[in-house]
Design a protein around this nucleic acid. Sequence first.
DNA 1: TATTGGATCGCC
DNA 2: GCGATCCAATAG
Length: 217
Amino acid sequence: MGWTEKILRKKMKKLKRNFYNQPTLKVAQDLLGKFLVKKIGKNILSGKIVETEAYVGPNDLASHASHGKTTRTAPMFGPPGYAYVYLVYGLNYCFNIVTEGKNYPAAVLIRAIEPAEGVASIIKNRNFNKKQNLKSKILNLKSLTNGPGKLCQALKIDKSLNNLDLTKNTLWFEDRGIKIKPSEIAATKRIGVDYAGKYKNKPWRFYLRGNPFVSKK
DNA sequence: TATTGGATCGCC
DNA sequence: GCGATCCAATAG
């Protein structure tokens, strides 16, 4: 039996809102091994989640929400299960899923996925420099989705999807029956938040130990 | 209204 | 290591 068939035979359960209405650190870890799925027309693009970061509550100085509710961060203050998408450094999008109850600002940043379905489209979306030859493209397969900005490019996630309901049929998360043991999960400090004072070293970045699609440190 | 700097990426 | 590139958040 082929790999694709095996996947198809497994349960593909779309995660419901109650999954996201849980403590953010739990959601961030439970999302590892789940699949992020994007529907573009008739095409399905997907990947296994291998790296996440938690942004937890109004006091987390690494979180955009630590300065209160603003136009940009409003989705984080909304109900769980919605997208929070923003532009960083003027060039790249970051994709988060809002967690916990309304008015408690928290979210999980998806930092890396391992491509599963629609790899040809993913390669196309990633817009590799045309000067690169096939060999470098193959070498670059690992760098298709190993970063928050890269996976947004790969799955065509941009600001038009901000505040999207992730329990519907455009962009969603699925449980395909993969079980992750606690020993498979590594926890480190979050990346790029050295400004966050006493929160900068919180071990709220989680990834699947040894997975080649994790973003480089 | 003006200034600042960032939950990144890719090339040098 | 460094430049790209834009806009939300602040300060004035």
